[in-house]
């Protein structure tokens, strides 16, 4: 009906609607994590010693490894977009696959970290648990959920790219890429806050 009319025109801002929506959503996500960071700052100030003891119990080496994995995965994501836009399906698959692998790698390292915490009785409800570890699980937990949330559509895109003509929507990959970089960026904030800043 509307195809004959002038209603569905080019986006006024020249930015694809999906991308614009993603930017707005990322603003929202930023506020979500800001809520955690705000609470973190307040309670850190009133529980200095506990936070110090807590962050000394974390393994910054593992977290550093994870940081590189995520940054690498962001890079391969950008390369995947680059190659999809040039219709190079093979390289798109390769780099998308690597990005997903990066996500898995991150989660595996997290798994080892978490299970170490469990053995040291640091989970909520266990004896050694402190308010610092409440924040640890809150922030890394929600971050990990965001990683998983990104990997699902990435896997779907990779899967679709094996169909006829490869994956047809570079804009969607670019939009997802924005999200993936954001998840990376949040880690860049969480990492020093929990692991590096010894009071």
């Amino acid at each position: 009906m509307s195809s004959a009319l002038n209603l569905s025109h080019e986006p006024v801002t020249k930015i694809a609607s999906g991308k614009l929506t993603m930017w707005a959503f990322l603003a929202s996500e930023l506020m979500f994590f800001s809520g955690f960071f705000g609470a973190f700052i307040v309670l850190r100030n009133s529980n200095y010693e506990v936070f110090k003891a807590g962050s000394e119990q974390l393994s910054w080496v593992l977290a550093l490894v994870n940081t590189f994995i995520l940054i690498g995965s962001s890079l391969t994501m950008a390369l995947a977009i680059y190659h999809l836009e040039r219709q190079n399906t093979k390289l798109f698959r390769a780099f998308m696959g690597l990005s997903i692998l990066g996500g898995f790698g991150f989660l595996i390292v997290k798994y080892f970290e978490y299970s170490a915490k469990y053995h040291h009785h640091l989970f909520p409800g266990q004896e050694e648990h402190t308010i610092f570890f409440s924040f640890y699980f809150l922030m890394t937990g929600f971050h990990a959920m965001h990683v998983i949330g990104g990997m699902i559509p990435m896997a779907y895109m990779l899967f679709r790219s094996y169909g006829k003509g490869g994956y047809p929507y570079p804009v969607k990959v670019e939009t997802l890429g924005l999200y993936w970089h954001f998840v990376d960026l949040m880690w860049i904030f969480i990492f020093p806050a929990l692991y590096l800043i010894f009071p």
């Binding site: 929202s28 506020m31 955690f36 609470a39 409800g125 308010i131």
Partner: peptide
Amino acid sequence: ITLGTPVLAAGLAMLFMDNFLHTSF
């Protein structure tokens, strides 16, 4: 909504953990 609601969501996430997992934010 875009800027305010997620902050409530952050608070609710912490409240949920206090309530359900017995953390103590």
